[in-house]
């Protein structure tokens, strides 16, 4: 099994889209006239987080898995990666592809960005899926671990550090795609532009910056889009009570807890996630 074979039956395109001056890598698939679904990865991540979801969703929806600002192979302007900048970039992408409205699926940081977008620009967001969403807490230990492990994986030669960084995320090592995803992440992490930009990429792991961007209950209460919160009960970056707090803060939100699952529910338990997501999207349409 490889990323290629996962996508073998999918009519997809890897595009580089000019989103408000930011050259943005996007994996696009699905009917041109389908409702737009945008998939947003986590901190230091990349669009490959959704390789198991594109195929099933592209049967019905116009799918876009993008590398967010400063991430993956997307441009990395020299400014701190704060949430409003990510939101601005996302909206610029939507404008560039002619999407007036989109369903947003965000994992971790991606969820933080998606939720913020829904709270500020409700007219652009059809539905919201928040997968192990970050941004509701300041946990200095987790932040420090993320900074150190990412910096080590990016700057030191040893690919084991990147493998370790991925191991952190999942409840179980992915025997099928784990090695390939390690190679992908290693390549991204070792691009000089990525290394130069580390301090901007990790800006939200600094307490003062994080506080400024925190997703507080008052903000989440403003979200009107139908929302599905998905959480792995073995999420290393936030415990199940956090998921409940989020689902409680967002009006009408639905909560699904995946057992034996870590930080990437959409990937670790794609067979459970895909039908759940498709059902949720269909319900909302």
């Amino acid at each position: 099994m490889t990323i290629w074979t996962e996508l073998a039956d999918v009519d997809f395109r890897q595009a580089y889209v000019d989103a408000g001056g930011i050259r943005t890598r996007a994996l696009q698939a699905g009917p041109e006239d389908g409702e737009h679904v945008v998939f947003l990865h986590g901190t230091t991540g990349h669009l490959e987080a959704f390789v198991r979801n594109i195929g099933p969703h592209a049967r019905r929806y116009r799918c876009h898995a993008i590398d967010m600002l400063g991430h993956g192979y997307t441009d990395k302007p020299d400014k701190p990666g704060e949430i409003p900048a990510y939101v601005e970039h996302l909206l610029a992408y939507l404008d560039a592809v002619g999407a007036k409205k989109a369903h947003l699926v965000g994992e971790s940081l991606g969820g933080w960005v998606a939720a913020w977008t829904a709270s500020e620009h409700p007219e652009r967001v059809a539905t919201l899926q928040l997968l192990c969403m970050g941004g509701t807490k300041v946990n200095p230990e987790v932040m420090q671990r993320l900074k150190t492990s990412t910096t080590a994986a990016s700057l030191e030669d040893d690919i084991e550090l990147t493998r370790k960084r991925l191991r952190l995320l999942w409840a179980e090592w992915d025997d099928d795609l784990g090695d390939e995803l390690t190679e992908v992440r290693y390549d991204i992490y070792h691009r000089p532009e990525f290394q130069k930009n580390l301090h901007n990429l990790l800006a939200l792991q600094e307490t003062e910056t994080r506080e400024r961007n925190l997703l507080r209950p008052e903000r989440m209460a403003r979200i009107s889009a139908p929302t599905l919160v998905v959480w792995g009960n073995k999420n290393p970056f936030g415990d199940v009570p956090e998921a409940h707090a989020i689902a409680d803060a967002i009006p009408g939100a639905r909560l699904e807890i995946f057992p034996e699952c870590g930080h990437w529910p959409q990937h670790e338990q794609a067979d459970r996630y895909n039908p759940l997501s498709l059902e949720f999207l269909a319900e909302a349409s």
Binding site: Q144, T148, T151, L155, L198, H199
Partner: peptide
């Protein structure tokens, strides 16, 4: 380039410096 992971001013700049040197090695002291 040596990075001290609990030095809050210096550590974030490790990549900005190392990536601009020719083939610099990096070691982090946790």
């Amino acid at each position: 380039c040596i990075g001290a992971s609990a030095d809050p001013h210096a550590f974030p700049q490790l990549g900005a410096l190392s990536s601009r040197l020719n083939n610099a090695k990096v070691v982090i002291v946790e």
